[in-house]
Design a protein around this nucleic acid. Structure first.
Lengths: 159, 159
DNA sequence: GAGAAGTGCTTGTAGACCGCAACCATACGT
DNA sequence: ACGTATGGTTGCGGTCTACAAGCACTTCTC
């Protein structure tokens, strides 16, 4: 266990700070970056654009929240015309949610704004540091995910 | 601007994911790590332990939230006996909030739990990576902070 | 030193999110 | 066909947050 307690605490504190900052950013710099979409629009619309039509449960999986939350959010997006819903031809219980033209346009607009904002915020980062940070952050997120989920038997144990 | 759009987007996505995960962690792994304290206990009690008695506004500054939020949280902590309040001798408007013995004990307990949890979660990190990530995360948080606050004149402009 | 303005804090109010549980409709296994 | 499982919606409660109004006190100004 070659990880110094000092470093561990510092990392935890740093991530905590980043968390708080991130919350501030997504609420304060919100309107200038969301481009008309509600706050959750980006999270839901991006998977729709990337993977095409899909059901609520799939979106909930991508977003990492409860299905009920996505259900409401999708209802709002549908009401505002950003997504379209059609019954799943293979399963009468489910609906398929798809990006509408207006949704695609809003998404493109938002993408521009986000890019501009991120470019400004990351102005004095260079490629190497950013790439390194990306990798470490992804790894950390994965580890935290793993640690947060209830202790599973990792390998070959009878469930 | 030597930062590839690909890397930029990847970094944003990674941080977003980390944000979501962090929220999950602090709500799901909560009880096992908070040691009896309410969810905001750690955030408030740590500065009290480190810097001694201080006022609500200072705590709000540390926590990065509105004073009104801290006011309620402190009231709750006081009700549960984790902090003590006394009038500021130099300013009749303010109160000084201090850690009570029970608060110190709870904080120590929480620290143990958090350490254990963090150690487990970061089990396969080595010192170098963790330290590097710490530095990069702190730098990123600072940059985001800066980018989130309303555009100030950075240098030598008449305010 | 009296009034005006500023400051520290509390409380009322409201909004954004979230998850759980209950419920309905449909699908699936036997 | 019947019981069970699954996708989705809605009701409900909880947490966390900020803003605005109000109170007590301090500080400034004349």
């Amino acid at each position: 266990m070659p990880l110094t307690p000092t470093t561990r605490d510092r990392l935890v504190a740093g991530v905590t700070h980043l968390l708080r900052t991130g919350r501030h950013v997504s609420s304060r710099a919100a309107e200038s970056v969301y481009g008309g979409l509600p706050s959750f629009g980006w999270t839901l619309l991006v998977p729709l654009e990337r993977d095409g039509e899909q059901r609520c449960s799939a979106l909930a999986g991508h977003a990492g929240v409860d299905v009920s939350v996505v259900s409401r959010q999708v209802a709002a997006l549908e009401r505002d015309g950003y997504v379209e819903r059609r019954p799943d031809p293979h399963d009468g219980r489910a609906s398929l949610i798809g990006l509408s033209p207006a949704g695609a346009a809003a998404l493109a607009r938002t993408r521009e704004l986000r890019s501009a904002w991120a470019t400004a915020a990351l102005a004095d980062w260079d490629e190497d540091d950013a790439r390194l940070l990306s990798e470490l952050v992804e790894r950390l997120a994965a580890d935290l995910d793993r640690a947060a989920t209830p202790p599973r038997q990792p390998v070959g144990a009878a469930s």
